[in-house]
């Protein structure tokens, strides 16, 4: 077993990954969690390179950071936009009665 400077790097990388994921899973602000998740994905890409898996690293960099992040952000925005009262047309058809007393459609961005 060879303990080298590389092992130190491994430990540091692993600890950073764990710290990031702990934070992203426990931070109160969901928006912050999503941002942390994107950086987590980038760090994972680095890890895949370290593990001699360049194919996976490429896929992770493109998918994990380039697509999953925007997906989360747009979902978050869609939810927030809805909550601020900009109702969508199509969700009224199945609505039950008690939703009637719902936000007036005032606020726009």
């Amino acid at each position: 077993m060879i303990y080298s400077i590389l092992t130190l790097f491994d430990i540091l990388l692993a600890l950073t990954l764990l710290w990031l994921s702990w934070n992203l899973l426990n931070t109160e602000d969901i928006f912050k969690a999503v941002v942390l998740f994107i950086s987590f994905g980038l760090l994972m890409a680095l890890t895949w390179v370290r593990m001699r898996a360049p194919d996976v690293a490429l896929a992770e960099a493109a998918l994990g950071a380039g697509l999953t992040g925007p997906l989360f952000l747009s979902a978050l925005r869609r939810m927030n936009r809805f909550l601020k009262g900009e109702r969508r047309l199509d969700c009224d058809e199945n609505r039950e009665k008690d939703n009637g007393k719902n936000p007036k459609q005032t606020q726009a961005t």
Binding site: M79, L83, N94, K101, P103, K104, Q107
Partner: peptide, 27 residues
């Protein structure tokens, strides 16, 4: 799917309170 769930539910799933309260907060 979770967006759809939010849009058809009258609870604010992100903050765990009724939708109306969040809307009031915004206005």
């Amino acid at each position: 799917l979770s967006c759809r769930v939010q849009e058809t539910s009258n609870r604010d799933l992100l903050r765990e309170k009724p939708v109306a309260e969040t809307a009031k907060e915004c206005t």
